[in-house]
Design a protein around this nucleic acid. Structure first.
Lengths: 133, 133
DNA sequence: CTGCATCCTTCTTGATACTG
DNA sequence: CAGTATCAAGAAGGATGCAG
């Protein structure tokens, strides 16, 4: 194997070796997770979502929603009423993901402080900008 | 718990409401997770990492490693030998994260097919370019 | 062997405006 | 209300070359 079979790429290999990446890539978007969380409480409307995730642009909401729908993570229900009404709801698969995400939340909660301190220490150590002036 | 103080907000509230995002953002980089996985087996050298994660550029390896180090997820040990030798190792905190990531892997594994089918179905439904012409 | 700096390309996201 | 289209800005990532 020397090292060079860089011939055709390794994207496939990587995906195979690291399925985690797949999930992450899928949920990597800045908003996917937020939307999943927002929709976790039950069916929710486009505008509701827009408000819940506050900060998201219409464009991103739509795009993310479409991806989620495509992956079978949310269902889109259109109510043919006069003023259009569309509701989004998490699928069972998405609910499982949501539950799993909770363990990450847990990890984050448990180490938030530790990590923050680590960063502070690191910055202090590497950015010192001698303030003895 | 009213919930509605939609007044100003946001970023802070979101971070608070969704710590998951924090983790995700932290590990969002295309390589962080791969590196964590690669280092999960024990201390590993820069070059080793470069090969394990194959596909990563030196620049990205360095940057990601620095971030990981900053967050206290990996320790960097420099062996003052003639040809420099540096070893990276996961910290306990990172190992916990790694373990947690496993549940995500599990989720991905369990639904990989379902999701793939969902995408295929979605694409068939929305891209179809009616070929009856 | 490790690592940093620069340059350049690509993808993602945001802002806006318009349609059903 | 819901959604799409376009345009431009910015961040992330890749390639290289140099240095301790």
């Amino acid at each position: 194997m020397s090292q060079g079979n860089t011939g055709v790429t390794s994207q496939a290999v990587l995906a195979q070796a690291c399925p985690v990446r797949e999930v992450l890539d899928r949920v990597a978007g800045k908003w996917s997770v937020l939307i999943i969380v927002a929709a976790a409480h039950g069916p929710i409307r486009f505008t509701e979502l827009e408000r819940s995730v506050e900060g998201i642009s219409r464009r991103m909401l739509t795009l993310t929603l479409r991806n989620l729908e495509r992956d079978g993570l949310v269902t889109r229900t259109v109510h043919p009423t006069v003023p259009p009404k569309v509701e989004y709801e998490l699928t069972p698969v998405a609910r499982e993901l949501h539950a799993t995400l909770l363990s990450l939340t847990d990890w984050a909660e448990r180490h938030r402080v530790t990590i923050a301190e680590s960063r502070a220490a690191y910055d202090a150590e590497h950015r010192p900008e001698p303030v003895d002036a």
